[in-house]
């Protein structure tokens, strides 16, 4: 288990007691996300669907890399890593 920092954009902070970054323990990105929503249950429905999968419009980054291009939620994290979670903003 490693302590990693999870960085949240303004729009998600309300559900994390107003914090812009929280420290969470885990050994993979998936564990970090699970631990995060355990600590801040209000975040859960915004981040995960009923099957526990990260919603399509949510991007998860590990140290500035999209986890879709790493091992997704299985990606290993080490002490001091930074996970960023943020919604997709798009239009036409």
């Amino acid at each position: 288990m490693s302590a990693v920092t999870v960085r949240l954009p303004t729009v998600l902070r309300q559900q994390a007691n107003g914090q812009s970054a929280v420290s969470v323990a885990g050994s993979t990105v998936g564990e970090v996300v699970d631990e995060l929503v355990l600590g801040y249950p209000d975040l859960k429905s915004n981040l995960l669907d009923e099957a526990g999968t990260v919603r399509k419009f949510i991007n998860v980054y590990l140290n500035d890399e999209d986890i879709r291009f790493l091992d997704q939620l299985e990606t290993t994290v080490v002490e001091g890593d930074e996970v960023a979670i943020l919604p997709a903003v798009a239009g036409g």
């Binding site: 954009p9 991007n59 980054y61 500035d64 903003v89 798009a90």
Partner: peptide, 8 residues
């Protein structure tokens, strides 16, 4: 689509 990392 806003570059997500840039947004962060």
């Amino acid at each position: 689509q806003l570059d997500p990392m840039g947004y962060m």
